[in-house]
Simulated assay, not measured.
Amino acid sequence: MTESPDWPAGVARHVLPRIDSTNAEALRLAATLSGPTWIMAREQTAGRGRRGRAWRDPQGNLAATLLIRPTGSPADASLYSFVAALALHEALVATCGPAARVQIKWPNDGLLNGGKVAGILLESAGQGARVTALAIGIGVNLAAAPDPTTLEPGATPPVSVLGETGHAVTADQFLDLLAPAFARWQAQLETWGFAPIRSAWLARAARLGQPVTARTGRDTRHGTFEGIDDSGALILTTPAGRETIPAADIHFHEA
């Protein structure tokens, strides 16, 4: 395949006809890859979302994973989810056009006109406090959205790029936008640290300053979404005061 002239230098690209999970394949191949590599599948049969949920992947959508070898701690590696979110936002804006409303939903979703159009999943391999390989998986509903009845109650309704905008874009075309965008935001993180990434992310965040519900495995918190801290954790103002929540599912309060 001929790569886009904007494809980032030194980054490989593997396109597979069918695979269980691009994240799983990336981690299986990690020991054999000589540098950062995007792995994209035409068909993904066992995609994964957060907390072990299935990621349903209708034909024509994007299923891709970037495998990198970050330096630093697992906490440092987790910041790449915000890099991925910014790259995803940039690629969606370029694809969907100025009339579309593209936002980021903490911690890992892309929204298009209020519906969920994309998700991000980070998985890592390593020993102890060292991450030796990081798989950054991104799924985008380009051609079709999954059946809403297959999702858990309270989930953000799914949408597709084609359904919301009428724009038909292939997975290859979208990856040609996504990979260079990721490289640019990655360079910012690695040069300047998390602060500019955090500011850019907040400028694109959905429901900032509005009421949300944060659900963890044990607790439910209702409050106002105030932003994210220097580690990427959610800042929520509740009746009990200001709380920092490192991991949760966020549900919006609909009018």
Rank of each mutant, 00 (worst) to 15 (best):
W7L: 07
A200N: 10
P36E: 04
A30C: 12
T65M: 14
F194C: 05
T150K: 09
P107A: 15
T2Q: 15
R51V: 13
L86W: 06
R51Y: 14
D249Y: 04
W201A: 03
G52Q: 15
T37S: 12
I245E: 05
R101K: 13
L62T: 02
A203G: 14
Q210P: 01
E254S: 13
G49T: 06
E3K: 13
L122D: 01
L202E: 14
T150N: 06
T65F: 13
T32M: 11
V169E: 00
N113Y: 09
A125E: 13
A94R: 12
L234K: 02
L175K: 03
A91M: 03
E152M: 13
T65C: 14
A203N: 14
T191G: 12
A87S: 12
T149Y: 07
T237L: 15
R53V: 08
I68L: 15
R53W: 09
T95S: 08
R215F: 04
W7K: 06
N61L: 12
A233Y: 04
N108F: 09
R48L: 13
G114R: 11
V102W: 09
M1S: 14
V212W: 07
Q103T: 08
V140T: 02
R51I: 12
D172A: 14
S199F: 06
S78D: 10
R51G: 10
A171R: 04
A30N: 07
A24G: 14
V93I: 13
A205C: 13
S160M: 10
R221G: 02
A100K: 03
V93W: 03
L202Y: 07
M1P: 07
T216N: 06
L92R: 00
A145K: 03
Q186W: 01
G110I: 04
R215W: 04
G52A: 15
V11H: 03
T224W: 11
A203L: 13
A187P: 00
E152V: 07
T150H: 08
A64C: 15
A203H: 13
I245G: 01
T32I: 02
V11Y: 05
A183L: 07
R51L: 15
L66I: 10
A84G: 07
V169D: 00
P148T: 03
W185A: 00
F182T: 00
T165P: 00
P8Y: 09
P107I: 12
